[in-house]
Design a binder for these strands. Structure first.
Lengths: 345, 345
DNA sequence: TTGTATGCGTTATCAG
DNA sequence: CTGATAACGCATACAA
């Protein structure tokens, strides 16, 4: 910019004025303006964002901390987030929170350095209290996505997520309409959305008289292997469930695979419902019945919240805003009528 | 830092010296040092990376441009990249290159702004010449991962990828050892690694006398839906192939699903081999035989190359370095002996 | 309408 | 051993 000022024979401040071109009435002569623009283009001028940030301008960087980017659902969420961010001129920097040791690193790199204007949390991080704590103390805006919609005292962040109760209820109603009376639930760590889904399962079982002994709720790692473990445990029960609600598509896929390995027909002998509707859900064998959420809309709301835009500011009364979207049940091939009644006949 | 200088009763430059603590012999009195450290901790001092960057220091930001983060394979690659980057103190900022219009945005956000010290390309971007062109002209270091190992004149970037020929060859040898003689190939856009895999397929078919008429090579979108389209087309052929090599696990999963929908037994009537070994590959029905690559090592090499570290500098003679890793065939349940011989008997 | 000067937080150079 | 000062690239208050 100094160079272009010299080349144009004007002051550096004039160049700044021209290039920024404030919408308000600034008085720069047309000839000067054109000359500056021409030279700027010629010299391939690029604004230096750090210098701007140094002066208090926003960094145009949005931090995204994902629990497990390996889960196809979060991968899709990241993509949606990235698209929404770019639409507003922001870039996404990836935080990571896998191992214990990494918590600190997340901070060092992304927050402690206040490189980001805001941070979006994807998934529940109450398992990493230090991260949450540091985030609270930082002066960045933080938004939590898929973090559960309930109010926890552990953090004061605005939240946007899906109506887990409605999703689980739709899944259970679907399965009971198929005459299933013994329905199990498989979930990962009892946090955030997963916890809500589990609570919704228990609640709906109670009000609708579905069998749901304690052993019907399995906690396993949120991987396909976890699904296999859960199925193994459930099959040892008597009576074994004839339908399983999985808190996650990945888990559901593991369940289907485990059933296949054991020669149990899905959906003939066992119905399985997932949650997320990841892209691969429509290509499992059989195709997975699952609960879909409006990922793009959730990501959009998250970005707007994080950037202080949008109509969300009023939501949620005195507390931080809590935005909730509605899910949709997608019925495919992994659920069918229960054969429980046939057997005794 | 100004505050802490004032509080400690020393000059700001002294504080800088203490805090940076150059390994070389700098002479700061012990008492001053301790006092400064104490106050810094007390005040919660955090270095401001932008100010550093303004003075020419590296930004500690690594750009990652992914073709399609929705593909679970690339999601895993991103994770590996992120881990490797963090290990070196770097954060990853996500570029995006989906739609046509976005090409420009990628630049604006990540490069034009020279916010990154280096950029890593994941997948082949020759389909977006403008991105590549801008990258060439930028003064950032660029490394291309999974971009094909061949030398293309279109770009001068260092490359690290997998030995696609070896992978395809292992897949084909496996399948021919199972007595298959009619083996088809399904791939996405003919770029980079996919192109190499296709070339390897054709080459190996020729030298080993496998049937591979032109119609046995199908180009479809790299989605599960693409796999379905490919299977539909292949089944209309006569003779139809008894085994299919997919250039991608996602494609392979689509193929398996399509076969299931049509009542074709896998692997009984049709063997399928994938490529990538995504986490879900072991949980398909049946589990997918596929080619695994050392993703973590490739990501590590990519980061090192991008950061100018590691032992790669000499590799590749006069041209940009081209690093190639070896894949491994993982045999699971989606391949079995051909029944072609049984039928006539 | 345009030029001059200043400061953002750091580090490096040069005096003291 | 340590303090003062310049400079990084940009935006702005102020002077001309």
């Amino acid at each position: 910019m100094k160079d272009i000022a010299a080349a144009a024979g004007v002051a550096q401040s004039t160049v700044s004025r021209v290039l920024n071109d404030v919408p308000g009435r600034i008085h720069v002569s047309v000839d000067t303006r054109e000359r500056v623009h021409a030279i700027a283009r010629e010299l391939g001028y690029r604004p230096h964002p750090f210098a701007r940030a140094l002066r208090g301008a926003p960094t145009m960087l949005l931090g995204a901390v994902v629990r497990d980017i390996t889960d196809p659902f979060f991968a899709g969420a990241i993509e949606a987030l990235s698209i929404e961010a770019k639409e507003r001129g922001y870039s996404v920097v990836l935080g990571h929170a896998r191992a214990n040791a990494d918590e600190a690193i997340v901070l060092t790199g992304v927050l402690e350095a206040r490189q980001c204007d805001a941070v979006v949390l994807l998934g529940d991080f109450r398992g990493e209290p230090r991260l949450v704590e540091d985030l609270r103390n930082a002066d960045v805006r933080v938004v939590a996505l898929w973090h559960g919609s309930q109010t926890y005292r552990s953090h004061p962040f605005p939240t946007v997520t899906v109506d887990n109760r409605a999703g689980i209820r739709a899944a259970l109603e679907h399965v009971t309409s198929l005459e299933h009376t013994h329905v199990a639930f498989v979930g990962g760590a009892s946090l955030g959305d997963i916890r809500e889904r589990q609570a919704a399962y228990l609640e709906y079982c109670k009000v609708s008289g579905i069998e749901s002994p304690k052993e019907y709720v399995r906690h396993v790692p949120n991987t396909t292997r976890g699904g296999e473990l859960a199925l193994a445990a459930l099959l040892e029960l008597s009576p074994a469930p004839t339908a399983i609600i999985a808190a996650t598509d990945v888990l559901a896929i593991g369940l289907i695979h485990a059933a296949y390995e054991r020669g149990i027909a899905v959906p003939g002998e066992l119905s399985i419902v997932g949650f997320d509707d990841i892209p691969l859900a429509e290509a499992t064998v059989p195709a997975l019945t699952t609960v879909r959420m409006p990922t793009a809309e959730i990501a959009a709301a998250g970005v707007e919240l994080a950037l202080g835009e949008g109509p969300w500011l009023g939501t949620g009364a005195q507390d931080a805003p809590r935005v909730v979207f509605q899910p949709t049940l997608i019925v495919r091939g992994s659920t069918a009528a229960s054969k429980a009644r046939d057997t005794p006949a």
